[in-house]
Write a protein that binds this DNA or RNA. Structure first.
Lengths: 197, 197
DNA sequence: ATTTGTGAGTAAGTATTACTCACTAATTTT
DNA sequence: AAAATTAGTGAGTAATACTTACTCACAAAT
C-alpha cells in the first residue's frame, strides 16, 4: 500500500477558507470560481488541482462544519438517560445549531440536496450518522417500553426530522426569529403526547 | 384601467408545454433555454418575450401544476367533518399527490426554494393557500375542543408539514417506494396520539 | 554533478449558458 | 389601406465552470 497522502498545501487550505468566508456572505450558487480564487489569492486553475469541481470543494468545506455540529449534539445526548429526554435534546440542539449557523443550514437544506453527488460525499456520511443516532435512540426507547409498541421507528424519525427541518426553514428563508425553547418544547410535546384532546 | 391582457399566443403555450415535458425527464437546472426552444420549435429569443427569465417561466408552469394539486385536496377535505379527519385527509392526499407527481414535488422541495424570487411568484401564492387551509383546520379544531388547548397551532402545522415533506423527500431523492396508506396513518397516529407509552 | 521526477502553482484558453437587441412578419385597429 | 400593435426571429454578448499546456522549485537517484 502506498504511503498515505497527508500533505495539505497552503493553496488548498486558502481555497477552502476562501469559500468558507464567501459562504457567510452569499449563497453558494452565486459564488464564482473566479471569486473564490481571487479571495484566496490563488489562480482559478489551482482549485481544480485539489478539487474535482466546485461542488466537491463545497462538500469538503461542509464536512468540517457538520463535524462540529454533530459532536455537540452527540455529547449532549450522551448525558441524558431516557429515550424521551434524549430526543428532546436532539430537537433542541438541532434547532440551536442550525440557528447558530444559518449559512450552513441554508446550504444543507436548500442548496446541496438537488445534486445527486452530494449523497456520495463525505459530508453526507455525517448526515447519515446523525439520522442513525436518532433511529437508535428510538429503537432503544421502544425496547425499554418508553414508547408505544405500535409505532414505526422510521415514521417517528420522519416526524421528528421533518418538524425540525420545517421549523428551521422559516427562519432560513424568511429570516423569522425562532424561539428555540418554545418551538422545541412544542414539537416534543406534540410528538410524545399527541395533539388530540 | 387598461384592458385585461388575455392573449395567449401559440408560441407562449408551446414554450410552457415544452418545459413541462422536459421536466419529466430531467431536473430544471440541467434543462437549457436552447433545449426548451428547440423542443417548442421556437427560437430562444421568444422565451424572453413572454417570460422575464428562465425562472419566471418555471414558476408559471409550476403554478398550473399546483393548482390541480390544491383543488384535489380541498375537495376531499370539504367532505370530512371533524378536524382530525380533515387533517388525516390532508396528510394522505398530500403524500398521494406528491407521489403521483414526483417531478413537480422534486422541483418544489429541491429546486425553487433557494431562489428568493420564488416567494414572490404566483406559484408560491398557491403554496400559501395550501398551508393557510391547514392552519384554519387546526384553529377550528381547537375551538371545537377536538385538539388540546395547550398546543400552538403554528407548531402543530410545522410538525404536520414537516412530516409530510420529509416522507416525500426519501422517495424523491432515493426513489424509495412509499407506502402511502401506512405512512400517512403512521404520521397521523403519532401527531394525534403521541409516541409516548 | 547531472538526470529524473514530482508537487505547487500559473496563464491563457474553450465551451456552454442565460439573456439581449435590432430586426421582420403577421395580425388587428383605425 | 395605412398605422399600430403583437408575434416571432437570429445573430450576437458576457459570464462562468472547467481544461490544458506550461513553469518553477526542489528532492532523490544515478
Amino acid at each position: 500500500m502506498k504511503q498515505k497522502k497527508k500533505t495539505n498545501p497552503p493553496g488548498r487550505i486558502k481555497i477552502m477558507k476562501s469559500l468558507s468566508n464567501l459562504m457567510s456572505q452569499k449563497d453558494f450558487h452565486s459564488i464564482t470560481t473566479a471569486e473564490i480564487a481571487r479571495n484566496a489569492q490563488v489562480t482559478e486553475g489551482l482549485i481544480y488541482k485539489y478539487f474535482k469541481d466546485k461542488k466537491d470543494l463545497l462538500y469538503q468545506v461542509l464536512n468540517e462544519h457538520f463535524y462540529e455540529f454533530l459532536a455537540k449534539i452527540e455529547n449532549r445526548v450522551a448525558n441524558e438517560k431516557t429515550c424521551i429526554e434524549k430526543i428532546e435534546v436532539v430537537i433542541f440542539s438541532s434547532l440551536e445549531s442550525y440557528a447558530d449557523n444559518r449559512i450552513f443550514s441554508r446550504i444543507l437544506f436548500l442548496e446541496v440536496r438537488n445534486s445527486p453527488d452530494f449523497f456520495d460525499s463525505v459530508a453526507y456520511d455525517m448526515v447519515r450518522k446523525y439520522t442513525r443516532t436518532i433511529l437508535e435512540i428510538i429503537e432503544k426507547g421502544m425496547e425499554k417500553g418508553e414508547l408505544k409498541p405500535d409505532i414505526d421507528p422510521l415514521t417517528l424519525r420522519k416526524v421528528i426530522l421533518g418538524a425540525i427541518e420545517h421549523a428551521c426553514l422559516g427562519e432560513i428563508i424568511f429570516g423569522k426569529e425562532l424561539n428555540i425553547d418554545e418551538v422545541s418544547f412544542g414539537i416534543a410535546n406534540i410528538v410524545f403526547n399527541g395533539a388530540k384532546a
